[in-house]
Design a protein around this nucleic acid. Structure first.
Length: 549
RNA sequence: GCGCCUGUAGCUCAGUGGAUAGAGCAGCGGCCUUCUAAGCCGAAUGUCGCAGGUUCGAAUCCUGCCAGGCGCGCCA
């Protein structure tokens, strides 16, 4: 409906060009929004006020009246248009449009909400991408959920989606990991504990060492760090994948940074940077020239040890992804990557990469609290909270719903003590309960009998019935906006809106025991549409839609 | 010091330059002989961090300031 009105307004503006020469219809950036109050109709637009400003017209209401007169709608869509307030146009949608929509939703079923705007296009979503140095933390949880929900939203919009995980199993941190495990292993053999400087202290290190001891006995007493590193990597990656699986997440591709060295891609980037005079040698290292790229300072690309910093592979990786032909490449990054991400994209752009296709989804950190006290998260000290632990406490549905619930830019708080009590507090239950309530009606024998009777949706005239249909009708536009803005939280917010409309309808409009059989039949169909809508929203979020609670 | 993010009801947070700023939770008052009360209805709750500016109109845009988070490494 939003689109129908927007198209009509565009057409009306075009038709008014003759009488208003100063008007540039394409530059009238108007919005069509749901009205905030019932007396303002179903939807409203500010188009006349924007146009009036462009025309320099003093009387905005007069412009609005002219625009309203120029609007044309197909029969059975808009019942009437009113000029109101400072120059709004309020649209009152024809009841028939909404009544018919119930049938459309039921017919669409699993496909209600699906869009076609991504048909024929592919998108790559890179997320989680934690190096295998330890179990996933609560912080990774937000990344995982945001990435997977964005991937799901793209699938619902018709895109072909690749879920990708980028990791590095080489370098200093992995070396430290190997040494940490070796130290624990030797401790098990009776040697004094000699953890390396800055080594990993989490309990999982000792667990890996204990497993090695159990499997191989004392044979590794003199083994090289690399042996322990390899074992640790395998164990930790298996755990990371298992944790993701618990969240309903799997990846299509694991991209190893090492492959960029093997293929020569990293050397190629370095060569090109030198060719463009964007790299120079100093102090035994290779530096990136910041100024021509709009960066505040120069950065090291290759350390004096000859080893590249993380930047170079990151640049090669983005060029690789862009070269694979995706229409859109999405990165899900925590707030700590903001600056480096700018550097990488600046270089990619300078080397001819089309960074317009790269969308960076930045999210702020999660503050963990327990019993009112803030919990600090660090992988190297053993003070983090694992995502597995959180899943044990509240379950996958709650983890997904909670992380998807807040805007990525919010510095959200996750209180573990609250999460434990969350059976009563979590807004997810409100939505799931709505779904379960509908199913309990549809399960009844009377419902099956009723469903066979003739359907007359024109009987749906109650305020609560109409409000529920309006809510259900909005799914496609909510999805479109969540996609455009990369804001998954719009879906839980919307789900609550639909659930509220349903609960109000349920309370006010008896279904099976309606005044007449015909009305009962019509309401049953509406309940069916509401069920489909809630189930599909929950599917977009990857949260279960229980039939009983 | 510089960059990015945030500041909205007691708490956690929505809010596309638009009309009287919303939800959940907590608290207060009602509603179960009737399809699931994990629900509904009602009342109450606000210096939209502060101060300027732009605009017909600002929680929203601009500037400055205050507070918190993150970053500014030859770590990733």
């Amino acid at each position: 409906m939003q689109q129908i009105i927007a198209d009509a307004v565009h057409a009306a503006l075009e038709s008014l060009r003759a009488s208003w020469p100063a008007l540039e219809p394409d530059r009238v950036a108007f919005t069509v929004q749901p009205s905030s109050r019932p007396e303002h109709g179903d939807l409203q637009t500010n188009a006349a006020m924007i146009a009036a400003a462009q025309l320099g017209a003093r009387d905005k209401r007069a412009v609005a009246a002219d625009l309203a007169a120029a609007l044309t709608f197909a029969p059975g869509t808009i019942a009437r248009v009113e000029v109101a307030g400072p120059g709004f146009l309020n649209f009152f949608v024809d009841d028939r449009y909404y009544q018919d929509l119930v049938a459309r939703v039921v017919a669409a079923d699993d496909d209600w909400g699906r869009l076609t705007l991504g048909t024929g296009q592919s998108v790559n979503v890179e997320f989680v991408s934690a190096n295998p140095t330890g179990p996933l933390t609560v912080g990774h949880g937000r990344n995982a959920v945001l990435g997977d929900v964005v991937a799901r939203l793209h699938e619902w919009a018709g895109y072909k989606v690749t879920r990708e995980y980028y990791f590095n199993n080489a370098g200093r941190q992995m070396h430290l990991l190997g040494e940490s495990v070796r130290a624990r292993y030797r401790e098990l053999l009776g040697a004094p504990l000699e953890l390396p400087e800055g080594g990993y202290q989490g309990g999982y290190i000792a667990d890996i060492a204990a497993t090695l001891r159990a499997e191989q006995g004392d044979e590794l007493a003199a083994a090289d760090e690399a042996v322990f590193r390899g074992a640790a990597e395998r164990a930790i990656f298996a755990q990371i994948e298992a944790t993701c699986a618990r969240l309903g997440i799997s990846f299509d591709r694991f991209f190893n940074e090492q492959s960029l060295y093997d293929s020569g891609a990293i050397q190629a980037v370095l060569d090109q940077l030198r060719t463009h005079d964007l790299a120079y040698e100093a102090d035994g290292a290779t530096w990136l020239r910041g100024e021509p790229l709009g960066l505040d300072k120069d950065r090291v690309l290759v350390k004096s040890s000859g080893e590249p910093t993380y930047r170079l592979p990151d640049m090669a990786y983005h060029l690789d992804k862009l070269g694979r032909g995706y229409e859109t490449v999405i990165d899900v990054f925590g707030a700590d990557h903001i600056d480096t991400c700018q550097e990488v994209l600046a270089v990619v752009r300078a080397l001819g990469g089309d960074t317009e296709r790269v969308k960076v989804m930045l999210y702020q950190f999660v503050t963990l609290t327990r019993d009112g006290q803030q919990v600090k998260m660090s992988t190297r000290q053993a003070t983090y909270e694992t995502l597995d632990g959180l899943l044990d406490e509240v379950g996958a549905d709650a983890v997904r719903y909670f992380f998807a619930l807040r805007s990525p830019t919010s510095h959200m708080e996750f209180d573990l003590a609250l999460a434990l009590r969350q059976a009563n507090d979590n807004p997810m239950y409100y939505v799931q309960y709505g779904h379960a309530r509908i199913n309990s009606i549809l399960r009844r024998e009377e419902a099956a009998a009723l469903a066979a009777e003739p359907l007359d949706l024109a009987l749906l005239t109650d305020e609560a019935e109409r409000a529920l249909i309006v809510a259900v009708s909005r799914l496609p536009e909510v999805l479109a906006r969540a996609l455009a803005e990369h804001e998954p939280h719009r879906l839980p917010t919307y789900a609550a809106e639909v659930a509220t409309a349903f609960h109000q309808f349920y309370d006010r409009c008896p279904i099976l025991s309606a005044e007449t059989r015909a009305l009962a039949r019509a309401r049953l169909e509406l309940a069916q549409a509401a069920r489909i809508c809630l189930r599909n929203v929950l599917a977009m979020l990857g949260v279960s839609a229980p039939e009983r609670m």
